[in-house]
């Protein structure tokens, strides 16, 4: 295995190939390497690249992909312009992990499905397509409720993505083939497993995520709620964005995580909120609409009520934020 200390984005890209992996904080990669689940031939160290800045201009917050989670949540500009991100990061993992974990690494982290991460389990379609799925075949692990397929029910790992998708964030990517950057809505970075669960992403692993850009709109308020089994195992989470004018919701986004194969936009829920008075947001009808599209299996059926709880709580917090703003 070769370790490359890249000195520039161009140099990092020049080493990227089918058996390479970029290394940010290295935490989740290190775990998968030690268990033999990832077996790259080239590791491309990004720590010397100038990707550790947070900049704000023209209503946009641009976050370098190598910013540490602890740096993100402590940054004065993030705390004042995007407090939702601070709120999410403070509930994420542990303080020691947050010192090392990068924004890019958190967004691209592979699933925490315990059977994917267990090298003694031979049946995992994500590791070897066609080998089966030990979760679907009777494990007690519930798996995800949304976006799953007959071959994989693994939940996506990123919590930061739930909030960033609610904020309509975009990511900037460089590819070894092209010389210019491209941007992509963060939500479009993730895919459902379908018949090929081997990747969770719509991009190639050779593409380099350099930054996340978040529009900062002052009329928007956010609510985030999370239920977790332990700091590292979220069971269900939800981020809500409400844009309110004269007590009427003019725009809304509801994103579910934790029990979803990818950050999940509750599309049928949003039309029930938009155009309605703020007071009608906290209704059972809205909460139940967020559960539309759930594909429960016997083991995951109990997660439905958890999902309802986090949606209701995230909506309540967003409404509360709006009230606090007006005061």
């Amino acid at each position: 295995m070769q370790w490359v200390r890249a000195q520039s984005i161009a140099e990092a890209l020049s080493h990227a190939g089918p058996t390479s992996r970029y290394v940010g904080g290295g935490l989740s990669l290190s775990l998968l390497l030690q268990r033999g689940i990832e077996q790259p031939e080239t590791l491309i160290d990004l720590s010397a690249l100038p990707l550790r800045q947070i900049e704000g201009r023209q209503g946009l917050l641009r976050i370098g992909s190598q910013v540490r989670l602890a740096e993100l949540s402590a940054h004065p500009m993030v705390q004042s312009l995007a407090p939702l991100l601070t709120d999410i990061v403070r509930q994420l993992a542990t303080p020691a992990l947050r010192n090392q974990a990068t924004v890019g690494g958190e967004l691209l982290e592979r699933t925490r499905c315990p059977l994917f991460r267990d090298p003694s389990n031979p049946r995992c379609n994500k590791r070897t397509v066609g080998s089966g799925c030990a979760v679907i075949d009777g494990s007690e692990h519930p798996g995800a409720l949304f976006g799953t397929s007959a071959s994989c029910v693994a939940a996506s790992a990123s919590e930061l993505a739930i909030g960033l998708c609610a904020m309509s964030a975009e990511v900037t990517l460089y590819s070894p083939e092209g010389t210019t950057e491209r941007s992509l809505p963060l939500l479009a970075l993730y895919r459902s497993p379908g018949s090929d669960p081997s990747t969770e992403l719509t991009i190639e692993r050779t593409e380099l995520l350099t930054s996340v850009t978040v529009p900062v709109a002052t009329q928007q308020v956010f609510g985030y709620a999370r239920l977790a089994e332990s700091p590292l195992v979220p069971l269900a989470s939800c981020a809500v964005m409400l844009s309110v004018r004269d007590q009427v919701v003019v725009d809304a986004k509801v994103i579910l995580g934790g029990l979803t194969a990818k950050p999940w936009r509750a599309e049928r829920c949003e039309p029930l909120i938009i155009g309605q008075p703020l007071a009608s947001v906290l209704s059972d009808r809205v909460v139940n609409a967020a559960l539309d599209g759930a594909q429960p299996r016997p083991a995951s059926r109990p997660l439905r009520s958890l999902a309802q709880q986090v949606v209701r709580e995230a909506l309540r917090r967003a409404v509360e934020k709006h009230a606090a703003h007006r005061r």
């Binding site: 290394v23 904080g25 935490l27 989740s28 290190s30 775990l31 542990t94 303080p95 020691a96 090392q100």
Partner: peptide, 15 residues
């Protein structure tokens, strides 16, 4: 590591 606490078991030494 550089004054910040980290879990040594998951930090690649090369970093």
């Amino acid at each position: 590591l550089a004054g910040k606490r980290v879990p040594a078991c998951l930090v690649p030494a090369a970093l």
